[in-house]
Amino acid sequence: MTATPLMTVEDLSISFRIEDRWCRAVNGVSFDIMPDETLCLVGESGCGKSITAMSLMRLLPGSARLGGRIGFDGKDILTMPEAELQTIRGRRIAMIFQEPMTSLNPVLTVGEQIAEPLVLHKGMGWAEAKREARHLLDLVRIPDADRRLRQYPYELSGGMRQRVMIAIGLACRPEILIADEPTTALDVTIQAQVLALLDEIRREQGLSIVLITHDLGVVANVADRVAVMYAGDLVETAPAGELFDKPSHPYTQALLRTVPRADAAFDLHPIEGQVPSIQSMPEGCRFAPRCGEAHAACSSPPNLSSGPHAVRCWARRDVA
């Protein structure tokens, strides 16, 4: 890829203070977000994918200690003054969340909620913003837009609510849309509709999507590139085709063997043990205690190799 990245995350680390000790929830993660691509951050609970996504807009609570650099438009999001950040948040980088019922305001109409960012960020009048909101509902394929604009979130189905969330996210025509488990709460037939919609919009509008998910099936269906996280480490990153054809990190390989597939019955191979708790992370490679290939070198942390297919593993220095 020769295009310049829209956003460059370099050696991002996020720590929280728990019982008088700093605990690293995200441990030196680096990746690029390229124009017009869907990048999937995938991993299990507690792997740090959601807080990584939050940090891209510096949405973490003040108690979090951040390290590294998030380069966007020549500046560092992590050190930018709050006022300048407000010109980016919601405007050039937008975010949608998993549970649309809790992230939508129950006492405002759909129309008011879509119009609000336009009024706040673009300085539109309410009447103009409402007209724009109507276009946005068309964009997310919600039929009968005029009636829907006057409705409240409780009057909509789960799939409709997620479409409204997407419309709010897209209101200011952002360059990057961060979607944190946007389809996890939806039924599969509705999930397929929402994923297809996001992909269509990405192509029409030319934006980049960062999709956070735990579902490898979803990843295989939408991702251009994938970053696999485990216990705060980015363990493998590769173009989607390559990641599924030639998974290289022992964790990625194990994860693919543990997912039950609808298209075939096979022996499930669980990953023994559990994800380590944030307060007692292993010293070296964080996957080593559950890894079948761990050896002496794994007691010190490996680095992510370079190249488009990068792996963070002592046993896999030769793949990329």
Partner: peptide, 8 residues
């Protein structure tokens, strides 16, 4: 057909 399968 709507169930995503981990296979590109």
């Amino acid at each position: 057909d709507a169930a995503p399968v981990p296979d590109v």
